[in-house]
Structure formats: C-alpha cells, structure tokens
C-alpha cells in the first residue's frame, strides 16, 4: 500500500473511533433499556437489544407508578414539549420584535435599551438563581408554564441573532418598501418576516433543543411531580437508584434517558442543515 492509502485508512479509523465514542454510550443505554431488571443486575450493561422493550417503555410512559411515584412518562413528555416549543416560539417572537426596533428605528433610548439587552449575557441564570426563584415565587408563578418559560426567553442570544440578520438585509429593500407606501408594521409583516423564514426555522430548532434541555430552572421551579419534564425526571430516577431498593429498575432509568434524548436528537437530525446554519450564524 502506498502513502496515500495509509493516510486515508487512518483518517477513516480516527473517524470511526470518534463515531463509536460519541454513539456507543447512547446505543448501550438503549440496548440495556430493553432488558429486564434481573438480566441487567446479573449481566451488567447490554450491547444488543433484548425482549423487554415494549414492557419497559409501556411502564415508563403509561403506567402510574411505573417510573415516578405518580406522574406518567407521557405527562413528562408533554411538559417537555410545552417547555421546548413554548421557549422556542416565545424567544423568536420577543427577540424578533426587539431586534426590529433596534435595527430599523431611530429612537432616543435605542442604544441604552440595546445595552440593557446585552446585560443579560452577563447574568446567566446560575448567578442569580436564588433571587430569581424568589421573584417567581412572589409573583405566584411557581409550578406554572408562564413562570417556567417567560424568565428564560429574555436573554440576548436570539435578539443578537436577528439583529445580525436584519443588518445584513439590503437597505434598498426598506427604501423600496417606503416608496411602495408600506408602514412600519407592514414592512415587518410583509417583507421582513417572510424574508427571515429560514432564519426563524433555524433558531426555532436550536431553541427547541435548548428549551427541552433546561435543567436548573425547572428543577427549582417545579415542586409538583405532575409538572416534571423528562430532564427533571432523570434527576428523580437518579435519586431513586441512589437510595437503592429491592431490585434497582435500571432499565427504566435507561428508558427515561432515551425518551429524554430522542425528540431533540430527532429534531437535530431531521433539520440538520438548518440547525447547523442557525448554530454557526447565531454565534457570529
């Protein structure tokens, strides 16, 4: 074999090892989730799917007490979807509106308000977690969808993303629209929003994943089991396993992991091109 072929071979080898490193844990989690608790306890993790797929997932999704004390997997799935979708849509709406004002209007407080929005980058949730909890709790929003979603959507990332995009829209479009007699609202609705379709799709995908994967905020915000998202359910199951018990239900823990992983992964895979575009563009 000559040099070029050796090089190609090592390249593929490195990539295959990388693929295994990234995918094997998830595969093992899935394979193990389809075995019975006894098998897992006896033999450890599994590399190939077993016969208990339907039973385990039915227990986790539909049976009361199957995985949590009372809440069903489907309820958690629903809560996760609400959080992911609500977060994505809310974020797109408020950040598009704000970016539109900042880019397309001349007004006195424009730069001041821009800095206020910028400030959110300096204040991630982690540094203001306890007072944020107090604010939400004093507004009576604990355990509500509003209290869960609204405080998360105001950060600057989406606004910056759309600001960047709006600035790249040729000036002449606004000028042409002005000559065509469009008002500020018409320009936004008839031209800017349709023009941003791909950008909106890209940011919706990313924000769905980000919303779905929220952990710290729902963790302190939700006190009732019926409001758990799948990601928070993970935390509970960890606790159950840690506390021990007669026969640790590892297969259910793995099943819940897979359920918490599947929707965002599917979204990323199906909309891969938009997702990559949105991710790379949003960080510019």
């Amino acid at each position: 074999m000559n040099n070029v072929n050796w090089r190609l071979l090592t390249t593929h080898l490195v990539l295959i090892l990388g693929m295994l490193f990234m995918s094997l844990p998830v595969w093992v989690a899935f394979a193990t989730s389809t075995h019975s608790a006894e098998t897992i306890l006896r033999e450890g993790l599994q590399l190939w799917p077993g016969a208990h797929f339907v039973e385990t997932y039915r227990q986790v999704l539909f049976v009361e007490g199957g995985v949590m004390k009372s809440v069903l997997g489907t309820t958690m799935l629903k809560n996760s979807l609400i959080l992911g979708i609500g977060f994505a849509i809310g974020k797109v709406i408020i950040s598009m509106l704000a970016a539109y004002a900042i880019v397309y209007f001349r007004f006195r407080l424009a730069s001041f308000l821009f800095w206020v929005i910028f400030m959110t980058l300096l204040l991630p949730l982690e540094v203001r977690i306890i007072p944020s909890y107090e604010v939400v709790s004093s507004l009576g929003l604990l355990d509500t969808h509003v209290g869960l979603i609204v405080p998360l959507i105001a950060s600057a990332t989406g606004t910056f993303f759309f600001r960047q995009f709006f600035r790249s829209v040729p000036d002449e479009l606004l000028e042409a629209a002005k000559l065509d007699g469009a008002t500020a609202w018409q320009f936004f609705k008839d031209i800017l929003v349709p023009l941003s379709r791909t950008m909106i799709a890209a940011i919706l995908i990313i924000m769905f994943v980000v919303g779905w994967n929220q952990y710290l905020w729902p963790l302190i915000m939700t006190t009732k089991e019926e409001n758990y998202t799948l990601v928070i359910g993970i935390k509970q199951i960890y606790q159950i396993l840690a506390e021990g018990g007669e026969l640790p239900q590892y297969q259910k823990a793995f099943a819940l992991t897979i359920l918490a992983t599947l929707p965002p992964v599917l979204v990323v895979l199906v909309f891969q091109n938009w997702f990559v575009k949105g991710l790379v563009e949003s960080e510019k």
């Binding site: 209007f105 407080l109 206020v116 204040l123 105001a154």
Partner: peptide, 24 residues
C-alpha cells in the same frame, strides 16, 4: 412604535434579570 416592540423583552429582563441580580 419602537418602544412597543422592545417592551416585551425589556420588561422580562427588568423583572427576571436585573431585579434578581440587584437582589443578589
């Protein structure tokens, strides 16, 4: 009009970002 457009984000920021940060 521009104030109307930025209002949602600014209000949320003041209530859930700036106020808690000041509290901290």
């Amino acid at each position: 009009i521009p104030y109307l457009f930025v209002a949602p984000q600014i209000i949320i920021i003041v209530v859930f970002f700036l106020w808690p940060a000041a509290q901290a």
